[in-house]
Simulated assay, not measured.
Amino acid sequence: MSFFRLPFLAALLVLLTFSLSSCDAIGTIFKAGAWTALIGIFLLVVLLWFIVRKMRG
């Protein structure tokens, strides 16, 4: 790891720590609503099903 990359990664980690708190993430999820979560879960299951089906031939 180069000398200049380490401070950049440390600054990025500090920025993410302050900007992405867990309480804020949970609040955003609840604001989005249950229907958005259900649609997202449905799309994820369909995507996984598609990938598994393609892998099995």
Rank of each mutant, 00 (worst) to 15 (best):
M1L: 08
A11F: 06
I29D: 09
R53V: 02
R56D: 00
V14N: 01
L13I: 09
M55T: 07
L43E: 15
R53Y: 10
V45I: 11
K54G: 07
V52D: 03
A34N: 05
L38V: 13
D24N: 11
L9H: 04
L16K: 05
L38M: 13
A32T: 12
M1P: 04
F8Y: 08
K31Y: 15
W49K: 15
I39P: 01
F8C: 06
L47H: 06
V46M: 14
L15Y: 12
W35T: 13
C23K: 08
F42C: 09
K54P: 02
L44E: 06
L9R: 09
A34V: 13
A37P: 06
G40A: 12
L38R: 08
R56Y: 06
L9G: 02
S21L: 05
L12D: 00
L48Q: 11
K31R: 14
K54V: 11
P7L: 04
L43V: 14
P7H: 05
R53L: 06
L15H: 09
A25W: 01
S2H: 08
T28I: 15
L15I: 04
G57F: 07
V45F: 04
G40R: 12
W49N: 13
L48W: 02
F42Y: 11
L6M: 08
M1W: 03
A34Q: 07
V52Y: 04
G57Y: 06
S19L: 13
A25Q: 07
A32S: 15
K31L: 15
F30D: 14
L6G: 03
L16T: 04
G57A: 10
I26K: 11
L20N: 07
L38F: 15
A11I: 01
A10M: 09
A11V: 03
R5W: 12
S19E: 12
L16W: 05
G40T: 12
A11Q: 02
C23R: 08
